[in-house]
């Protein structure tokens, strides 16, 4: 299965791959973790090969399947030839990248994206952050791919439930998480972690929003994953795989204190809002509505705007 892929040079850091269905929020999460907006984010599937963010690299380099490397002038990451590219390497040291490399994978289940594109890079990852849409969480297509991931990787990976802001009622969130706990029992290092990624990005620097969005718990868990990788994996063989992380209720439980420390260490220092969908929704619409109707209409749907 392993088609070898040219590896980046330099000291090896833990590698976290972001995987999941397309549009699940992988790139949004990568942007959040790396404190950047470099990764394109959009509502439809993004047609990019894996993007490997690493502090030990520099510039933007297209690594071809044949091993050749081509520096990209244009660092917008557009127009990369999917058929010939193994991955795109981006040198970046911000946020979590001072402790780990991030590999933002293309989504599964995109009919236009051959699975080989992410499959061939899979063996490079030490752990996976599997992103699943809260509103359609953990479907068979995800479970089937997860089954193919080696057990050792699965045991130190996390299930991140993105778009949790779209499940409004707390009791529904709890029931969703209970189902995920039952269905993915033993398949991840810890219980599923719900997070509202776009909230977290918008609320950077505000501890209340940071915590309310679920980003703090996510950071804590990632901290634990990194230390488990650090303990047993990097530079040693698979036999030294770490024990499973301590588990607890993702809703209520506070993370272990060492994890809290880790969490603080990985809060991004600076995060810019991504380009897509950044403008305040509604402004354009308002301009085009007939003012009288608009005011009434807005009142009717009970718009509460500051």
């Amino acid at each position: 299965m392993k088609t070898t892929v040219p590896e980046p040079s330099g000291p090896r850091r833990p590698r976290l791959a972001l995987m999941g269905e397309f549009s699940a929020g992988k790139s949004t999460l990568a942007n959040l973790l790396a404190g950047t907006d470099r990764l394109p984010v959009q509502v439809t599937a993004t047609e990019l090969p894996p993007v490997w963010l690493s502090a030990t690299a520099s510039g933007v380099t297209c690594v071809r399947l044949d091993g050749r490397e081509v520096a990209l002038e244009d660092d917008r990451l557009a127009n990369v030839d999917l058929a010939r590219t193994a991955y795109v390497r981006v040198g970046l040291g911000s946020g979590l990248l001072d402790r780990a490399d991030l590999i933002d994978m293309p989504g599964i289940s995109d009919p236009n994206m051959p699975p080989e594109v992410w499959q061939r890079l899979l063996p490079e990852a030490d752990a996976i952050l599997w992103c699943t849409h809260a509103t359609q969480a953990w479907r068979q297509s995800e479970a089937a791919v997860w089954d193919m991931v080696p057990e050792a990787i699965r045991r130190r990976s996390l299930l991140v439930v993105t778009r949790i802001d779209k499940i409004l009622r707390p009791e529904d969130r709890a029931r969703l998480l209970r189902r995920l706990a039952a269905e993915t029992d033993g398949a991840f290092a810890a219980p599923a972690i719900p997070v509202a990624l776009t909230r977290a990005i918008a609320g950077r620097g505000d501890p209340a929003i940071w915590s309310e969005s679920g980003a703090d718990r996510l950071m804590a868990a990632i901290g634990s994953v990194l230390s488990s990788i650090g303990q047993g994996v990097v530079g040693s063989d698979e036999a030294g795989a770490p024990a499973r992380l301590a588990t607890g209720s993702p809703v209520a439980a506070g993370p272990a204190s060492s994890a809290v420390a880790a969490a603080q260490a990985v809060v991004p220092r600076r995060i810019k809002l991504g380009g897509a969908g950044a403008g305040p929704a509604g402004s354009r619409a308002t301009a085009r509505l007939d003012p009288a109707q608009s005011a009434d209409f807005r009142a009717a749907i009970g718009e509460r705007e500051g």
Binding site: E21, F22, S23, A24, V43, T44, S109, D110, P111, H133, T135, Q136, R139, S141, R163
Partner: peptide
């Protein structure tokens, strides 16, 4: 579902 329309499935 609009947020993830037209998957392989």
């Amino acid at each position: 579902s609009a947020p993830q329309a037209m998957t392989a499935m």
